[in-house]
């Protein structure tokens, strides 16, 4: 079949009338001056289908309004190019995925090792001043001494730590505790009051100390920043696409956070065992937390900063050594008094 079209030679902008004859292997173009051009199907490109059909071959192009020619065209070389591009995208995805899973965490670990602990201490102090109001810190001397002794007992079981640990109990009813880079541990009075033994508080402190020892804050800064950099470098475009990338980035970062928590759980449990404390108290305090704080329903895990508690408890139950060397931890004052030290 034949189609009438306008022909552009790619040399000037002049158009010429052409009659296109479609064959199985390409197009035969009969120009108005009697000359012909042969377009092999392998070099044919469909540049546009609507509002006009534009076919290109090298620098030449034909334009026509009758879209029926599209159905008659022989298969073009576009398919091979599409397969090649798909292969490239898939392999790049695999590289990015490996970077996310292994590469960036490893780089962040190496990077954090190069950061002097004194920087972390300075950063931690700055955050402490920003976050903790001096009047919210509980001042009970006996209680603070008891907790400091417990923290020192745990720290003594750490192999050569560059950090000095100190614990601040602050008047906050919520069930929470956190660690700042450099060794400041902050415990909310709401958590302390729910502990039934020094070992239960030790379980919390051990987890937080390991966040500091494993330099999770520094690693998170390096890892999350490089992950977001990678995403924004590969993903740029119209306004809508970076928004999707940000959502993917946030989920990716949260997954890293949950891994840090698991790491601190495992290392915290081992620290309890090394300090010859009853490691099962760590599980007990997580059970208390399960009762005391809101637990999101199952299925929300990707949106959370911590793994869900039933899973954490199961993990620790499986990890705990069956016949540990345990010594009873002796306190100077009854624990129930220390637990209520912020009540005065």
């Amino acid at each position: 079949m034949n189609w009438a079209a306008a022909y552009y030679d790619g040399v000037t902008a002049r158009s010429r009338a052409v009659t296109i004859q479609v064959t199985d292997s390409g197009l035969l173009l009969a120009l108005d001056d009697g000359t012909t051009r042969w377009w092999d199907a392998s070099g044919l490109r469909i540049a546009s289908r609507r509002p006009v059909v534009r076919l290109e071959h090298g620098v030449e192009a034909v334009v026509l309004r009758d879209a029926s020619i599209l159905a008659a065209l022989p298969p073009t070389g576009a398919r091979t190019a599409a397969y090649r591009a798909t292969g490239f995208v898939l392999s790049l995805m695999a590289v990015l995925f490996l970077l996310y899973l292994k590469g960036l965490p490893a780089l962040a670990r190496a990077g954090a090792a190069a950061v002097p602990p004194s920087w972390e201490v300075a950063l931690g102090e700055a955050i402490y001043k920003e976050m903790v109001a001096p009047e919210s810190v509980c001042t009970d001397e006996t209680g603070n001494a008891e907790i400091a002794r417990l923290a020192a007992h745990l720290a003594a079981a750490l192999p050569e730590s560059p950090y000095e640990y100190r614990v601040a109990v602050i008047r906050e009813p919520s069930f929470n505790a956190f660690a700042l880079p450099g060794g400041a541990l902050i415990v909310h009075s709401g958590l302390l009051e729910k502990t039934g033994s020094p070992e239960q508080l030790a379980g919390v402190l051990a987890h937080e100390m390991q966040h500091v020892e494993l330099r999770h804050a520094t690693r998170a800064v390096l890892r999350d920043a490089s992950f977001r950099l990678l995403l924004t470098a590969v993903v740029t475009g119209g306004a809508e696409i970076p928004a999707a990338a940000k959502a993917v980035g946030s989920l990716g970062v949260l997954r890293y956070r949950r891994q840090d928590e698991e790491e601190a759980d495992t290392a915290g449990l081992r620290l309890m065992e090394a300090a010859r404390l009853d490691a099962s108290a760590m599980i007990e305090i997580y059970r208390v937390m399960e009762q005391e704080s809101f637990q999101p329903p199952k299925g929300f895990d990707p949106l959370l900063t911590h793994p869900n508690l039933p899973e954490r408890i199961d993990r620790l139950t499986n990890l705990i050594r069956p016949d540990p060397v345990r010594e009873r931890y002796e306190t100077t004052a009854p624990w129930s008094r220390t637990a209520r030290m912020c009540r005065e």
Binding site: M93, V234, A244
Partner: peptide, 11 residues
């Protein structure tokens, strides 16, 4: 774009 971890955004 979402399915390809953002790589498709160039296309």
């Amino acid at each position: 774009t979402v399915l390809t971890l953002g790589i498709y955004s160039a296309w």
